[in-house]
C-alpha cells in the first residue's frame, strides 16, 4: 500500500469519523518498502492540492522519514519549463525540499530521469521527493492505529484490513 493512500484513510468506526483525532491513522511497527516507478507529474500536480498536508507531515515524522516543508508546495513548483539541466536552483524557495539536508535512509534516489507527462515540463526536486515519498514508498506490514479509539488495523503483505470485529459494528 503506497503511502499516498494513508492520506485518505481514517478509522472505519462511524463514531470516530466525527473526531479529528481519527485522521490520520498512526503507523505502528511499520515495515516500509521502496518500489521505484516512473514519475507521474500530471498526477502529482493534480493530487497535491487535495492532500491534507499537516497530517501527511505528521505521518512522515512518525515513520522517521525526512521532514516535509511546513507549507505545502504549489502545484506550479513541481514542474518547470524544460531547460535541459537538472534543478537545484529553487533552493531559495522555501517550499522546496533540498536534497542536501534530507538524505533518504531507505535507498538511493532514482538515477534515471523520469519522463514528464507534459513535454514542456520537467520535474523539480520537490516533485521527485514527493514522488519518492507518496508513490514509491509503501507500507508492507505493521498496523495503523486510530488516535481516537485506539483500534489497530493490521497490515499484512501490503494489504490493510479495515474489517471491524463483531462487537464494534
Amino acid at each position: 500500500m503506497k503511502l499516498l493512500t494513508l492520506n485518505f484513510l481514517t478509522c472505519a468506526l462511524k463514531p470516530c469519523k466525527a473526531s479529528p483525532l481519527s485522521f490520520p491513522l498512526h503507523p505502528r511497527d511499520a515495515e516500509l518498502e521502496i518500489v521505484e516507478s516512473e514519475l507521474n507529474l500530471s498526477f502529482l500536480r493534480n493530487i497535491l492540492p487535495r492532500l491534507a498536508w499537516e497530517e501527511l507531515r505528521g505521518v512522515v515524522r512518525e515513520l522517521g522519514l525526512p521532514d516535509l516543508p511546513e507549507i505545502m508546495p504549489e502545484a506550479e513548483a513541481l514542474g518547470k519549463a524544460s531547460s535541459g539541466k537538472k534543478t537545484n536552483e529553487n533552493a531559495a524557495n522555501e517550499n522546496t525540499i533540498t536534497t542536501t539536508t534530507d538524505e533518504d535512509e531507505l535507498s538511493p534516489k532514482p538515477e534515471v530521469q523520469p519522463e514528464a507527462e507534459e513535454p514542456d515540463l520537467e520535474p523539480t526536486q520537490t516533485a521527485l521527493d514527493l514522488h519518492r515519498l507518496l508513490l514509491e514508498t509503501s507500507l508492507r506490514a505493521g498496523s495503523l492505529v486510530c488516535g481516537n479509539c485506539g483500534h489497530a488495523y493490521k497490515v499484512k503483505e501490503g494489504v490493510a484490513n479495515f474489517l471491524l470485529p463483531g462487537h464494534l459494528v
Binding site: M1, K2, L4, T5, F8, L9, T10, C11, A12, L13, K14, K17, F23, L25, V35, S37, E38, N40, L135, S138, Y153, G158, V159, A160, N161, F162, L163, L164, V169
Partner: peptide
C-alpha cells in the same frame, strides 16, 4: 501498470475507512 496501483485494502463500504469529511 504497477506504478499506477496505489494498493488495495480490505474494507466494507458501509463501514468505510476512507475519509468522508
Amino acid at each position: 501498470l504497477e506504478s499506477r496501483y496505489l494498493g488495495g485494502f480490505v474494507s466494507d463500504l458501509t463501514n468505510t475507512p476512507l475519509r468522508l469529511s
